[in-house]
Design a protein around this nucleic acid. Structure first.
Lengths: 346, 346
DNA sequence: TTTAGCACTCTTCCTCCCCGAGTGCTAAAC
DNA sequence: GTTTAGCACTCGGGGAGGAAGAGTGCTAAA
C-alpha cells in the first residue's frame, strides 16, 4: 500500500512536531498545531495505518506516536522541505572560515568548528582520501646527526612531517642527495603505487647517490615509512559535549556508548569511507538510527558530504546529531560549508 | 585544635572507604571494616568533632559522613600511604610507551593514552613550554610558486610547520637564501626574544640576500608568524568519556559542565601553567574540588607533574578524576609515566 | 574518656491510587 | 466508502502514605 497524500502530510507533521518537542505526538495535538481539514478520529485511523506500515512507533499503548527509522527515512527521502540558509547564518559561517587556510588542516578544523557551532551537534571533518593523491615533494632535513625530518607534500595540499633516525655518521650532503634522488624518482607517482621497491628504484636510478647498499636501504626504509605514514587521514571532531544537553541522552549510559565509539576516530573514519562508497552517486550520505553500523549510534543520525580539492573528489565533512534533528536545516548548513571549502580549495 | 592520632586514623579510614564505595560512611560501617579498638559511639564522637573542624560533611542528618575538600586535602598532604606500582602495571605502561618516539608529540600522545587507560580517568599531556626553548633550525621550502612551507625546529624537540603565501615571482633560490640567512641569524635565540625586528635584522645582516626591502619584509613577516605560531602549546587529552561511568556524573548536567570546560584546551592549559608556577617547588600539583578555579570541575581533583626535556623543566602531564579518586595510586602512575618520559627525552 | 542504650531523623523504596493523555472500536453521518 | 462523534479502556506519571533501615546525638553509667 502506498502512502496517499494525507498520510504523507500526517507523517511529515508528526516528524516536524517530534523534532521540535521530543515528545510523542497525539492526534489531538496534531489537529491543534496543523490545519488538517479532518477530525482527530480520522487522523487516528491514518496514524494506526502508518504504524502498521512501519513508519511510526508507540513508546507505549497510551502515548502518542514517534517516527520510526523508516518514518525518518521516508521523511528525509521525499517529504521534507528544502531549507535555505538565512543570509546572516551564511555570513556567520563565512566569517568562521575566513581564517588563513594555507594548510588544509587549518581550514578543516575551522570548518568542523563552524559546523558544530551552527548545528549544535557533533561535527566532523576528514582530511582528503590520500590514496587517490600523488606525491609532489619529499624533503629530508638533517636536524642533528642521526635525526632527519622527512617532509612529505601531497597533491591534495596535505603536508606531513615525520622525524626518523638514521645512522649518526651520514652527512647532510649525503642525505640531501638521497632526498633529491627520491623526490625526482617519485614525484607525480600515486601514493598507492609507492612501495619499498619503487622507492629503492627511484634512489638507485640516480647516479649521484654513492653509499653502500645496506646503509642506503636503511635510509630509504625510513623515507618509505614517512611517506606511508602521511597516508593515514586525520579526523577533526567537535561538539561532542553538546549531545549531553539533549533529552535523548539524559541517560548517561547512552551518552557513554556514543562517546565510547566516537573516541575511536579510526572507526568513524572507516565507517564514513565505507558508506560514502555505497552512496557514491548521491550528493549526501544520510544514515538514520539503526542504519548506522556503529555501536552506540542507534539514536543518532549521521549526515556527510564530500568536498573537492582542485575539482576532484576528496575528503568528507559531516554531522552527527540525534535522529530527531532538523534534517533540512542541517543539510543546508553542511552544504554551505562544503561549498565554502570547495571554493577555497579550487 | 589539632588532630590527635585516632582522629587522623578515622579521617583516613573514611576517605579510604568513601573512595572505594562512593557512599557516605557511618560509624558502624567503619567499625566493621577497620580494626578500631574502640566502640562505634566513640567514633561517632570523633566524627562529630571532625565535622565541626571542617574535615567531614553530612549529605543529610541521618546519613554517614563524606570527606570535605579540606578532608581530602589533609588526607593527601599527610595521611595517605604511598602506593607502589606493581611490576605488571609498570610493564604495561612501558609497553604502551614503547612506540617510536622520534617526535615529542607522538610520545606525549602515547603517554596520555597510557595514563588514561591505567587510571581510568581523564589524562592530559602538554607539549613543552616553548617560551623557555630556543630556535635550532628554520627551513623554507618552496612547494609551488607563491607557496612556501616554513619548518621550525625548536630545542625541545618540537617540530612545527606552516604553509605561508608569498609573491608568486620569488624563486626557489631567493627563498633558500632568505631561509639560510634567517636561520643563521636566529638559531640559538630564545623564542621569547624573537620579534619582527630580530628576524629582519638577521636577514638583512646577511649580504647575500638581494631583494627590495618591501618584498623581503613580506617574506620575513610570514617567517615570523610561522615561528610565533610554533609557540602555542598542544594539549592531548584522553578518556573524557570514562567520567560518565562514575556515579558522581550520572547527572548529565554535571558532566556537561565538565565537558564544556574541557573542550577548551587553552583554558585548561592556561590553568595548569598557572598552578604549576604556584607550586613550583613541589613534585606534584594537586588541586581538589573547589580549589580548582575552572568551571565544572568542583567534583574533580586535578593532579599534574612536570616532565623534563634534556634535564630541563619542560611540559606537564596530568590526570583529572573525581575528588573520590585513589590518590596514591594515581600519583604513582603519573610518576611512573613522568619518569619514562624523562628517560626517553634525556 | 569511653561505652551502651535509646529516641529521633531522614532517605529510600514500595505500594496504592488517581489523573490525564491518548488510543481503538463502534455506530452513525456524510 | 470515508469521516466523525462518542465512549470505554490502557498505561505512564506523579503524589500520598507508610514501613524499613541506616545513622545520628544525647544521656547516663562504667
Amino acid at each position: 500500500m502506498a502512502l496517499d497524500n494525507r498520510k504523507k502530510e500526517v507523517l511529515q507533521a508528526i516528524v516536524d512536531d517530534y523534532v521540535a518537542t521530543c515528545e510523542p505526538v497525539g492526534s489531538k495535538a496534531l489537529i491543534d498545531r496543523h490545519d488538517f481539514m479532518v477530525s482527530s478520529a480520522t487522523l487516528r485511523n491514518d496514524m494506526a495505518e502508518l504504524e502498521q506500515m512501519g513508519y511510526l512507533e508507540k513508546p507505549h499503548t497510551s502515548a502518542g506516536r514517534i517516527p520510526s527509522d523508516k518514518g525518518y527515512r521516508e521523511y528525509v527521502d521525499s517529504l521534507m522541505k528544502v531549507d535555505h540558509l538565512s543570509d546572516e547564518e551564511g555570513q556567520e559561517i563565512k566569517e568562521k572560515l575566513s581564517v588563513s587556510f594555507d594548510e588544509i588542516a587549518g581550514l578543516l578544523k575551522a570548518a568542523s568548528s563552524a559546523l558544530s557551532d551552527q548545528t549544535g551537534y557533533i561535527s566532523l571533518a576528514m582530511t582528503p582520501k590520500l590514496t587517490s593523491s600523488y606525491l609532489t615533494q619529499l624533503k629530508m632535513l638533517m636536524i642533528e646527526p642521526g635525526k632527519v625530518l622527512v617532509v612529505v607534500v601531497l597533491s591534495a595540499g596535505v603536508v606531513k612531517n615525520r622525524m626518523v633516525r638514521i645512522p649518526d655518521f651520514l652527512t647532510q650532503d649525503q642525505i640531501a642527495q638521497i632526498s633529491i634522488a627520491v623526490e625526482q624518482g617519485l614525484s607525480g607517482m600515486p601514493l598507492s603505487e609507492i612501495s619499498l621497491i619503487t622507492v629503492a628504484t627511484a634512489a638507485k636510478g640516480n647516479r649521484k647517490v654513492e653509499l653502500p647498499d645496506a646503509l642506503l636501504n636503511q635510509v630509504l626504509y625510513e623515507a618509505y615509512t614517512a611517506i606511508k605514514q602521511a597516508d593515514n587521514l586525520d579526523v577533526y571532531m567537535q561538539g561532542k559535549h553538546k549531545m549531553l544537553a539533549l533529552p535523548e541522552f539524559s541517560d548517561t549510559r547512552r551518552a557513554q556508548g556514543l562517546f565510547d565509539t566516537l573516541s575511536h576516530d579510526g572507526l568513524v573514519a572507516g565507517y564514513v569511507d565505507e558508506v560514502t562508497k555505497q552512496d557514491e552517486k548521491k550528493e549526501y550520505m544520510i544514515r538514520i538510527g539503526q542504519e548506522i553500523t556503529l555501536d552506540g549510534l542507534d539514536d543518532c543520525s549521521f549526515i556527510t558530504t564530500t568536498y573537492n580539492v582542485g575539482g576532484k573528489v576528496a575528503g568528507n565533512i559531516g554531522v552527527i546529531g540525534p535522529k530527531r534533528m532538523e534534517y533540512s536545516k542541517v543539510i543546508s548548513q553542511i552544504n554551505f560549508v562544503r561549498m565554502m571549502i570547495d571554493e577555497k580549495l579550487k
